[in-house]
Design a protein around this nucleic acid. Structure first.
Length: 204
DNA sequence: TACTAGATCGGCT
DNA sequence: GCCGATCTAGTAG
């Protein structure tokens, strides 16, 4: 029996306003069960997207097959493919019809690190410090390391494949809010949140 | 350290 | 056709 294991976040955690959920995701654990392997990382950097007012959100211009899951209620996994090479994963938030989600931009590797190294660098030897910090420090890197792709689109985060584990909340003074990375529209919004001084974030 | 370009392809105009 | 919620390798300073 695991006495100290933290619990899976319930539906109610996700169905709140995206700007309330986003900073609270910091410090929580992202877990992917892959049949035999378990990938686990502490979330250290996120970005909020809100199709109601945010031109950078995929849901801003209305429903399409790709963004359908993001228009559903919170607690589902939105995975998309971009730049012809990378997958990025999001935590859908809010109520049905809103079109809000939080992009997971970086995590701190906790479990399954050897498998992450294999997925990222195609090699089996242990990672050096430089490689370790480069393992999951970006949205495309997180998905590659965890083996997340379009097959994970739409997964229920209260299920057993991909889910989040609770952890004590990061205090506000340890959270930084900045402009989002790589967006051109609605660039003024300070909707990127990360844990200050964490070495696994994508960019300082 | 800082900037630039190339890869590469699905989604949407 | 165009462009992107990216990453990496390359060059210049």
């Amino acid at each position: 029996m695991k006495i100290h294991s933290s619990s899976k976040l319930p539906r109610e955690f996700y169905t709140r306003e995206v700007l309330e959920v986003a900073p609270e995701l910091l410090g929580k654990y992202l877990v992917k069960e892959n049949g035999k392997k378990t990938f686990k990382g502490k979330i250290v950097e996120v970005e909020a997207y809100d199709g109601r007012i945010d031109q950078a959100a995929h849901t801003f211009t209305g429903r399409t097959p790709r963004n359908e899951i993001m228009f559903g209620e919170g607690g589902y996994f939105y995975v998309y493919f971009t730049y012809g090479a990378h997958y990025c994963c999001n935590i859908v938030t809010g109520k049905s019809g809103e079109g809000t989600a939080v992009l997971i931009r970086a995590v701190e590797p906790v479990e399954g690190i050897e498998e992450m190294v294999l997925n990222r660098y195609k090699k089996r030897s242990a990672a050096g410090n430089k490689e370790l910090y480069n393992l999951t420090s970006g949205p495309g890197k997180v998905c590659q390391a965890f083996g997340i792709d379009k097959r994970d689109y739409g997964l229920d985060l209260t299920g057993d494949v991909v889910y989040l584990l609770d952890n004590r909340q990061i205090p506000g003074e340890k959270i930084a809010a900045t402009q989002r990375i790589g967006v051109t529209r609605s660039a003024e919004l300070l909707w990127r949140f990360y844990i200050k001084d964490n070495p696994f974030i994508s960019k300082r």
